[in-house]
């Protein structure tokens, strides 16, 4: 109904605005889409044709070799499973840590607010480097456990500050005051007023943390020794490196390996990103929250 009302009111200026806007977005979409499309056709084309510049609009000498090679490996599937577990746990813990902390930091009445801010800002700039980090993880007994991958990832200060800002600007103060007058305590306010109003930011944070963990491999590479615990990205990286390695091979083997490596590059992008991309629309659902704030306010 609202839509029709707007449609009726479109002036000529609005129409021009919509057209220009749509045009630029379309252009942008094309610039984004072609390389994505290219990855797909490159992943099923003869790698020599890809490197030789023959693959432009459609796959050349179609081969599913790359996908076969990836899919037939049990470690890829195990990697998937590990990544899903790590990602799920990271998201749950990260939200439990970040959202309340973000809310607390967004309150002017937080005791020692400035100190806390400085406390969180310092690690954004100063780090001790890998060796002390490793030794701390070792003293905490986390080496070669999945927690070494999960725990350091459950708080990103950058994300924390984004959450804080979101709370500061998007939660109407009046609502909080009203809840206070109704006699609600801080925890009550947080769980029954703040959280329902913040689905958008929670969804974004879930997305950022999930994708951060999904794409990461560095901590796993350093802290995990059992290959059975490797996340997908590390497994794929190892496969890629293995196929590029040239130790001891003769000319023909090296050549075959190069071809495979070039094919696998594109295949691995698809294999590793498709599942997350499919999840994105679910996250988007929570972005249409504006209506609710309005209704709550009335």
């Amino acid at each position: 109904m609202k839509k029709r009302k707007n449609a009726l009111r479109d002036t000529l200026g609005d129409k021009i605005f919509y057209i220009i806007n749509g045009f630029f977005l379309l252009l942008l979409a094309l610039i984004i889409l072609y390389p994505l499309y290219f990855i797909i056709i490159a992943s099923i084309s003869d790698p020599d044709a890809v490197l030789g510049g023959e693959v432009v609009l459609y796959p050349v000498r179609v081969t599913l070799e790359g996908f076969q090679k990836i899919m037939e490996r049990s470690d890829v599937w195990r990697g998937y499973l590990n990544t899903i577990i790590y990602t799920a746990l990271t998201v749950v813990l990260a939200l439990a840590v970040t959202v309340p902390a973000g809310w607390a930091l967004s309150r002017k009445t937080l005791p020692g607010k400035k100190l806390f801010m400085i406390y969180f800002i310092i690690p954004m700039f100063f780090g001790g480097g890998l060796i002390p980090f490793y030794n701390v993880m070792s003293s905490l007994g986390l080496i070669n456990t999945m927690w070494a991958v999960i725990l350091p990832a459950i708080l990103s200060v950058w994300n924390l500050f984004m959450t804080k800002t979101f709370f500061e600007s998007s939660i109407p103060n009046g609502l909080i005051e009203a809840a206070k007058i109704d006699g609600a305590g801080q925890f009550r306010i947080f769980t029954s007023v703040v959280i329902p109003l913040s689905k958008a930011v929670i969804a974004v944070m879930a997305l950022y943390y999930a994708v951060g963990q999904w794409n990461s491999y560095f901590n796993a590479m350093i802290f995990l020794q059992d290959e059975s615990k490797y996340p997908l990205q590390l497994v794929l990286k190892e496969i890629l490196i293995a196929s590029e390695s040239t130790v001891g091979g003769s000319g023909e083997t090296i050549l075959q390996q190069f071809r495979m490596a070039n094919l696998l590059k594109y295949v691995s992008v698809i294999v590793s990103s498709l599942p997350v991309l499919c999840l994105y629309p679910f996250v988007q659902k929570y972005f249409a929250q504006g209506v609710m704030i309005g209704s709550l306010k009335e």
């Binding site: 890998l130 060796i131 030794n135 070792s138 990286k237």
Partner: peptide, 22 residues
């Protein structure tokens, strides 16, 4: 034998030396 892949080793080398007790 404690085997790691070549790429993992290049990252872990300093850490092996760094973790003096192990």
């Amino acid at each position: 034998w404690e085997n790691v892949s070549e790429s993992v080793y290049s990252q872990q080398k300093n850490l092996i030396f760094g973790n003096a007790d192990n």
